[in-house]
Write a protein that binds this DNA or RNA. Structure first.
Lengths: 341, 341
DNA sequence: CTGAAAGCGCTTACAG
DNA sequence: CTGAAAGCGCTTACAG
């Protein structure tokens, strides 16, 4: 007794003694069909709760109205804000979304791409897995189906890429510290040459240069797998220096929070002795004490923008694949870790 | 130059001068096909990067191998841990997942269900939107397609439901406070009669009863839309009482963190004067100071279990819809907010 | 204004 | 062991 049979065009046609073609056209408001027939068909469709099999529809038209999304880790708050934007915008535009996680694993990422292709998604939105070395699978896919990258991108892949104004955002963050009167500003960044880390570092350097502050390698620290614990570790390193910094800019909130925890432990006044700035506006940034000054990244807008570009590429295919980088503006949110009321 | 044509069975058949049927069977390891032919077909398939159109496959077999997932809010960390479990397990079992958000809106939830049906998902996993009043759409759907509820469930819907041992978990949390020597234990719960809140409250009452501690209505507080700010507010209420509590059990971490913030502000020693326990083991619980004692809910396991039951129902359809509740075990994680080293 | 027919890519019962 | 044919639910060019 489980499944009720689904109502199909055939069933409607039979009931009304019309052809399947006519029923199909009536439902799709084809101009050829008389108003009387159209009404009649629609009335029955509503009555029987007819809903078209989108699968058959998509199968015929080679369009599924499904977008594939691949992210490294679905648990990152910033990622979920992007996903929210993606879900909302694509629903508004009549698309559904298949989400999967690459778990920051290149092999897994390729597998996901492959399966998504098999499912005939109309396009793909992706944030690259950390250390994506071989972009061949991706380049190959690009020949078959539109792709838009966001957040974790790569210049090796010629497609539309949605990022934030990384360099400028970092510049503003560091300049804020300078305006506070700080002149010995440490940075905690990633060892790996990731797009995000590099750009933020460039912003840091430009801010120092513009304000004639010398660059000191001793307070430029790098770490692999940047994290809260690494933030703690590197804060300890900075505290052990002869000339301590008077501010620390960490390129992720988690590292910045690690820094705060470490300073707290050694009773260093924040921001009195050392000011701290992070990057992301993660939820933790208001939970930690003192609350963290950080760069807000408008995730939902990034997601929305990515969907808009992707759907445009799907619905208006061009001869050449668009290669462009779209930068979304961010805001510095000043909180207690760099501000004394 | 955009799209390459996809390799189809037809193309393979033509190239090898075989029929489509034979190629199909060879690829599917049908016993009828000779080893020689099978090999030959597979070799070419690999060479041309043939990958079956899962859409056509699903269309024909009335099985899409897509599961629909609907959650109230994708940004909740606990939700993402469940999603991780769902994604991983369903991938392992050869299914893909379509995720959408009901935004805690019943109308939106019904729409999502409708669209998922149209896309022909094989089954649905759902956490109910807050205040889901009319379960008619859901009951109707249940007639057509397997459904498994998790986390936010309802006894009004006869299907498989995956929950945690809410009552017992709360019991253990409160008993932990009692063992600490606390006897005036406040609770912060929800006004609305949600499954989760009710069960946790029952656990609280049972723990007090078992230890002969009188129940005092003055320290049983309820709030709509439980949140960090509500936690703060209600902590203030508790602090203003003549007889202050010596422990506060909040049925969510966010409320518990609000409590900690409020106590901190009024320089109340935690756990010296008042111990605090939350529920969820959210990421914040280690960021807040002091770190929060809380109930760890194994999200990935919940997700995995939900998928296992759902796929079982899909692949082994029964006459009657299974009505059962599966309770997943939780652990109390003791941290500084209820423990002095 | 309406219908018969082909076809999207695949599987499978039926023949041989 | 292999093939021709039907069919999943829909749309659309072609006829009338």
């Amino acid at each position: 007794m489980n499944k009720k049979p689904n109502v199909t065009l055939k069933a409607l046609a039979k009931e009304l003694d019309l052809s399947i073609s006519t029923v199909s056209r009536a439902l799709n408001d084809h101009p050829d069909i008389s108003t009387a027939t159209r009404e009649k068909v629609k009335r029955l469709a509503t009555k029987l709760h007819y809903s078209p099999n989108l699968f058959a529809k998509g199968f015929r038209s080679h369009r599924t109205h499904i977008l594939g999304v691949i992210v490294p880790n679905i648990s990152h708050y910033f990622t979920t804000t992007i996903l929210k934007g993606i879900l909302e915008e694509s629903e508004n535009l009549g698309y559904r979304v298949i989400i999967s996680e690459s778990r920051n694993d290149e092999i897994q990422q390729s597998k996901m791409l492959e399966t998504m292709m098999q499912f005939g998604v109309d396009g793909i939105l992706m944030a690259l897995a950390r250390k994506t070395k071989s972009v061949n699978t991706i380049l190959d896919m690009l020949q078959r189906i539109p792709l838009v990258l966001f957040d974790k991108v790569s210049s090796k892949i010629p497609c539309t890429q949605i990022v934030i104004n990384e360099e400028e955002a970092a510049y503003n963050a560091v300049e804020h510290l300078i305006n506070l009167g700080r002149s010995r500003i440490a940075i905690i960044k990633e060892t790996e040459r990731s797009f995000n880390s590099e750009k933020r570092f460039e912003g840091y350097l430009r801010a120092l240069r513009d304000h004639n502050i010398p660059v000191d390698d001793k307070i430029i620290l790098s770490t692999e797998d940047i994290s809260l614990d690494k933030g703690k570790m590197l804060a300890n390193v900075l505290l052990s220096l002869k000339e301590r910094p008077d501010a620390i800019f960490a390129i992720t909130d988690s590292a910045a929070i690690g820094v705060i925890k470490a300073l707290h432990k050694f009773k260093v006044a924040i921001p009195g002795e050392i000011a701290v700035v992070g990057f992301s506006n993660s939820l933790h940034s208001t939970i930690v004490h003192p609350s963290l000054t950080t760069v807000d990244q408008p995730g939902a807008l990034i997601g929305k923008t990515a969907v808009d570009y992707l759907i445009d590429e799907i619905e208006n295919p061009k001869e050449d694949i668009a290669t462009r980088t779209v930068a979304i503006k961010t805001n510095l949110i000043v909180r207690d870790s760099s501000f004394m009321p």
